[in-house]
Simulated scan of single mutants.
Amino acid sequence: MSLRAAVLGHPISHSKSPALHLAAYAKLGVEIGYTAIDVTEELLPALMRQVRGQAGWCGLSVTMPLKTAMLRQVDQVRGVAQTLGVVNTVSFEVHAGGFRTVGSNTDVAGIVNALRYAGAGATPAGVVLGGGGTAAAAVAALRDLGAATVTVIVRDPARTAEVRAAADSLGVALDIRDMAGAASVLAAADVVISTLPPRAADGLAAQVAALKTATPGVLLDVAYDPWPSLLASVWETGGGAVVPGLEMLLYQAVEQVRLFTGRGADVNGAVIDVMCDAVGLARRAF
């Protein structure tokens, strides 16, 4: 029986996940179909009931705005997903004559790997733009890189419940600031992770450009369409390294492929190469 997987989110038509996953499965020689399903938070419970009644599912990728809502739709939550309260991956395991759904989070590994391959050092002075579920994963990634304190810059400091809860669980101290006057903090950081939607960082990018100062750190801009973002362009002009969000998407997808196929060492450099080719992403040497 051919297996199937999908990426869930709203909107979802722009997603590069199908191209990444299908390229990996073709290289591995496994028969897994992978599609994009547009579903809102309100319709998620009905979709998950439908999925539970169908045979052949091996995995679901979960994107905005469903990463927190999916917590309530799985049988078990594991690893850092439990700590963060954010699920971006659902795998299916044989259990008691049927299967159980397991929620996990591969965003953290995706961010860590993307930053390491771009040259991010240990114990970075880290800044995160945004306060939602992806920002929570970014705080966890900076913790894994050795940061004890993370600066979080948001438009509304009152809307930071997710990232605060994640930091408390991880034992990371937060310095939360609003956008006003944040440009100098951004420019001086070793690592900046923007989790803001496309163009939402344009105003801050203009402020950084107006400083006319160097930006020597590493910037990961999770938004990858359109690319380059204004923030990425300004950062590169200042001499810093820029990591496109597509690269984070790649490395979190690599972890999902391992979970969905049950393959470990087989998901190697050759598989990553074809995944890069499928979305037009240049592979970094490491």
Rank of each mutant, 00 (worst) to 15 (best):
Ser2Lys: 15
Leu3Met: 15
Val7His: 00
Val7Asp: 00
Gly9Val: 09
His10Phe: 07
His14Gln: 12
Ser15His: 02
Ser17Leu: 08
Ala19Met: 07
Ala19Ser: 11
His21Gln: 12
Ala24Ser: 00
Tyr25Ile: 10
Ile37Gln: 04
Thr40Gln: 03
Glu42Arg: 15
Gly53Phe: 06
Ala55Met: 06
Thr63His: 05
Leu66Pro: 04
Leu71Gln: 13
Leu71Asp: 10
Arg72Thr: 10
Gln73Trp: 11
Val74Tyr: 14
Val77Cys: 03
Gly79Val: 10
Gln82Asn: 02
Thr83Ile: 10
Leu84Cys: 08
Gly85Met: 02
Phe92Ser: 00
Ser104Val: 01
Gly121Val: 04
Thr123Gln: 06
Pro124Gly: 03
Gly130Ser: 11
Gly132Ser: 04
Thr134Glu: 00
Ala135Pro: 07
Ala137Tyr: 02
Ala137Gln: 02
Ala137Ile: 08
Ala137Pro: 05
Leu142Ser: 09
Asp144Gln: 15
Ala147Glu: 00
Arg155Ser: 02
Arg155Ala: 05
Ala158Lys: 15
Ala158Tyr: 06
Arg159Ser: 02
Ser169Lys: 05
Ile176Ser: 03
Gly181Asp: 08
Leu186Cys: 11
Ser194Phe: 08
Gln207Leu: 05
Gln207Phe: 09
Val208Gly: 02
Ala209Gly: 13
Ser229Glu: 08
Glu236Tyr: 09
Ala241Trp: 09
Gly245Val: 03
Leu249Thr: 06
Val254Met: 14
Thr261Tyr: 04
Gly264Gln: 14
Val267Gly: 12
Asp273Ala: 15
Gly280Ile: 11
Arg283Leu: 01
Arg284Lys: 14
